[in-house]
């Protein structure tokens, strides 16, 4: 068993995350789906880093974690602002911009 199996695992997690974005109405849940996608990408990076025996992949994964943390802060802030205005965090609710 090589580290490649973890890449398969990452692909599955990535797809599950993507499905969550498409299917879940709760903004926070959809957002957790995005987080899962980023984590899947991290797993790929770390797995390849292991396979190639170098550290670059790990460092990239580290950067991604920091970026993801920053993204989470902004995303949740937007969700809170929206909740204060609308008393809901459903993604279906705000749909006045269309057409």
């Amino acid at each position: 068993m090589t580290a490649m199996s973890f890449v398969y695992l990452a692909a599955i997690l990535f797809a599950i995350g993507a499905a969550a974005v498409l299917l879940r109405r709760n903004a926070i849940v959809a957002f957790m789906g995005v987080e899962l996608m980023l984590n899947a990408a991290n797993l790929v990076l770390v797995a390849f880093s292991r396979m190639y025996g170098e550290l670059d992949g790990q460092i990239m994964a580290f950067f991604v974690m920091v970026v993801a943390a920053a993204e989470v802060v902004v995303g949740l802030a937007i969700i809170i602002a929206l909740f204060r205005a609308r008393q809901t965090i459903s993604l279906d609710e705000p749909a006045e911009l269309k057409g």
Binding site: V21, A30, L91, A95
Partner: peptide
Amino acid sequence: SRKLQTGQVRSYAATML
């Protein structure tokens, strides 16, 4: 084509995916 722009962000994500 305008109908495709439903205003639903989940549909947009679906289009992208």
